[in-house]
Simulated assay, not measured.
Amino acid sequence: MDQREEQEFAEYFAAKRDSVRRTAYMLCGDWHRADDLAQTAFVSLHRRWRKIRDRAATDAYLRKTLVRASIDESRRPWRRERQVEELPEPAGQGGPRLDDQVATREDLLAGLRGVPSRQRAVLVLRYFEGLDVSGVAKALGCSEGTVKSQTARGLENLRKVLGGLGEEVDSRG
């Protein structure tokens, strides 16, 4: 790339870095993995920067690359193990009840981690990135019907996971 193209990419990177990182975090629920996913997406974009003819479609390309990187990473065998911040408390010990707490962002992120990666990608793109059904279909390279069904299943799974979080807290209290 020549110096002008490098400067264009540097400006684009500076403008989009934080929003791409936040989207990556919503996809995976871990800031370290989000940094890795964002870096993977930007490296891929940098490699193809010269070939991009329609600069208006750059955001869509970057978003699609980010989602695909997230899905690919979630399929890796070492990602099937889940790490938790704290060990679960034995039943019968006092703790906060879910109905006494205000729903927090952490609850939502914990719920999203319990949803399969493709459904999570659809939910994040639809409800956090604000894309419509056709935009999500383009970003994921699938049909609008698939987006609709994955949205419905994803919301159903998210409700189950969030309901399960409430049952866990209720059983302790």
Score class of each variant (00 low, 15 high):
33 R>G: 01
33 R>M: 13
33 R>L: 12
35 D>W: 02
35 D>K: 03
35 D>T: 07
39 Q>Y: 02
45 L>H: 05
46 H>R: 13
49 W>Y: 13
50 R>T: 13
51 K>Q: 15
52 I>A: 12
54 D>M: 05
55 R>Y: 04
55 R>F: 09
57 A>F: 00
61 Y>P: 00
65 T>W: 03
65 T>G: 03
67 V>K: 01
68 R>T: 09
70 S>H: 13
74 S>A: 15
74 S>E: 13
76 R>Y: 02
76 R>S: 07
79 R>M: 15
79 R>H: 11
80 R>C: 08
81 E>Y: 08
82 R>P: 00
84 V>Y: 15
84 V>C: 03
87 L>C: 06
92 G>Y: 08
93 Q>F: 08
93 Q>M: 05
93 Q>A: 07
95 G>L: 06
96 P>G: 11
97 R>T: 08
97 R>A: 14
100 D>K: 09
101 Q>L: 15
103 A>I: 14
109 L>R: 10
109 L>G: 00
111 G>P: 08
111 G>W: 01
112 L>H: 05
113 R>T: 10
115 V>F: 07
116 P>I: 08
116 P>M: 12
119 Q>T: 08
121 A>S: 13
121 A>K: 02
123 L>P: 05
123 L>C: 10
125 L>E: 02
125 L>Q: 04
127 Y>M: 11
127 Y>Q: 14
129 E>Q: 14
130 G>H: 11
130 G>F: 10
132 D>G: 13
135 G>N: 08
135 G>H: 07
